[in-house]
Design a protein around this nucleic acid. Structure first.
Length: 466
RNA sequence: GGCCCCAUCGUCUAACGGUUAGGACACCAGGUUCUCAUCCUGGUAACAGGGGUUCGAUUCCCCUUGGGGCUACCA
């Protein structure tokens, strides 16, 4: 699942170095971008592994070597068919409602002709020769059990392209064998081409690895999630302020569950590596439910401290993006302020990005709101003015040193008594200018004594001006 | 069209022949509450259909239907 959400080049890379329980290295990528903690594997930048090189363009000779080996064995052949011919062929097949596929035109070309074409540098590809009379290809998938397909249904697919690059079919088989891959774990979309890969292993005389085809992650319309179509991606979620832990946990639950009657839904990466098991992987695709991801993300946000959240905000460049950091990249005073904003907003955050989104009053110099909003329900102007005046009186008595969250809550709540609405609503509107916001105690704490008093006094003066 | 895979609440899923079919998200209602959110309580909601096998099928088999995937010199 994770691979489906990652960059394709990254997914391809992971596919190459993947060993053993695949979910682990895949998701580990989320936590240590660029570094896969697998013995023998390389980083994206370094060359640590024992099976390199790992960059496809640096392995071209290897692929060519093995493609030629198949030609020598009679298991592959040069094909000089032009794109036009191939297109025409496909059109005819479609028109006649026959299965599409290569017709084997170059299967048995004259040796002389091949030699001539090669000398003339006629563009060519190397195609695999599906063995005749091979019958049914059967393999046991770790997740799906027995899967069978008739070899005759397969056509002679390309192994080496005319630009010298291998197709996935050749590359994955050659790489997996050379890199001693034991388990090939990939999306279900690869299931139909697995027989081709098995035939390749047979042609080379290599040991066939174990296969596990994971269910696909689906869009809401149940079609395959695809990065190329611009569907959901890990990067996209990280950019929008989702936590790695949440994405990981959520994706892990798509197509897998702990089983044995367990209703546990929260798993850390380490726990996952302990309990993950192919036998508990589902066979059917799973729709990606963003709402549940939101819920999961909120859960993980609640588990962080405000300081941790601030650090994440800074790492993710959210603050620059929002314009909070205008000059100094790490304004100490601003950080202290943001810490308070985060503490107050934490419980209503779905994503990191939302910090400040619904609380513009924390960042504005002056508020603008209709005066009438200050009155609680049917309360009169007088009652409202009285409440505001009382708030000023109390807050003025609170020293700078006592301007703490707990203390403010206690003091103001005591003052409000059982008439909370009469007192707290006007105070909250005076401080925020908004209908919805955190509690006035918390807002006052964040804003500080001077700003808070200033805002309440201004609210009071708005009445005077009426 | 051909081939392959799949099928439990709207969504993610539990169940490995015998359960009032459980949980989570979402949704709805109530509680907490100055608002919003959180939080707590409760509720609505599913075995696609038809045949078998069996004392007994959501569970095993077959068919139908439905959904998805593949069908490239993309992965």
């Amino acid at each position: 699942g994770a691979a489906q959400l990652m960059d394709e080049d990254l997914a391809a890379f992971v596919d190459v170095v993947d060993v053993g329980v695949v979910a682990v290295p895949l998701v580990r990528q989320l936590f240590h971008p660029g570094v896969l903690e697998i013995p023998g594997a390389e980083t994206q930048h370094g060359e640590k592994g024992a099976f390199g090189p790992y960059i496809q363009s640096e392995r071209l000779e290897t692929y060519r070597h093995y493609a030629l080996e198949l030609i020598e064995k009679g298991a592959a052949y040069y094909c000089f068919c032009t794109e036009e011919r191939l297109t025409r062929l496909r059109e005819e097949q479609t028109k006649e409602k026959r299965p599409t596929g290569y017709d084997g035109h170059c299967r048995a070309l004259d040796e002389e002709l091949i030699k001539n074409n090669l000398e003339k540098r006629t563009p060519f590809v190397i195609r695999f020769k599906i063995p005749e009379g091979r019958g049914t290809i059967t393999f046991t998938d770790e997740i799906r059990g027995k899967v069978a397909i008739e070899a005759s249904a397969l056509d002679d697919h390309v192994l080496l392209k005319s630009d010298g690059y291998p197709t996935y079919h050749l590359a994955s088989v050659v790489d997996d064998h050379l890199m001693e891959i034991s388990h090939v774990v990939r999306g279900e979309d690869w299931l139909p081409s697995t027989p081709k890969h098995i035939l390749l292993y047979e042609a080379f005389g290599w040991t066939i690895p174990l296969y596990a085809h994971l269910p696909l992650i689906l869009n809401e319309d149940k079609t395959k999630l695809s990065k190329r179509k611009g569907d959901k991606s890990i990067d996209g979620f990280l950019e929008r302020g989702y936590l790695k832990e949440a994405i990981l946990n959520f994706v892990a639950l798509l197509g897998w569950n702990p089983g044995k009657g367990s209703t546990e839904e929260f798993f850390t990466l380490d726990e996952l590596t302990q309990v993950f098991d192919f036998s508990q992987v589902n066979k059917s695709g799973a729709v990606f439910d963003s709402k549940k991801l939101d819920w999961m993300n909120h859960h993980y946000i609640m588990k962080k401290t405000p300081q941790e959240l601030l650090s994440l905000l800074q790492e993710g460049k959210f603050l620059e993006e929002k314009g909070y950091y205008q000059e100094a990249p790490a304004d100490r005073k601003l950080d202290a302020f943001l810490l308070k904003v985060i503490a107050v907003e934490q419980e209503r955050l779905t994503t990191l990005f939302e910090v400040g989104e619904n609380t513009p009053f924390f960042f504005k110099e002056t508020l603008s709101y209709p005066v009438a909003l200050l009155a609680w329900k049917e309360n009169s102007q007088e009652q409202t003015k009285e409440a505001l005046a009382k708030a000023i009186e109390i807050l003025e008595k609170v020293g700078e040193g006592e301007w703490a969250r707990e203390n403010l809550a206690k003091t103001l709540l005591e003052m409000a008594g059982d008439k909370k609405g009469d007192f707290l609503w006007p105070l909250r509107v005076a401080l925020t200018g908004a209908e919805c916001s955190p509690s006035p105690m918390d807002v006052a704490w964040v804003l500080g004594k001077a700003t808070s008093l200033k805002r309440i006094q201004r609210a009071l003066s708005l009445f005077e001006a009426l």
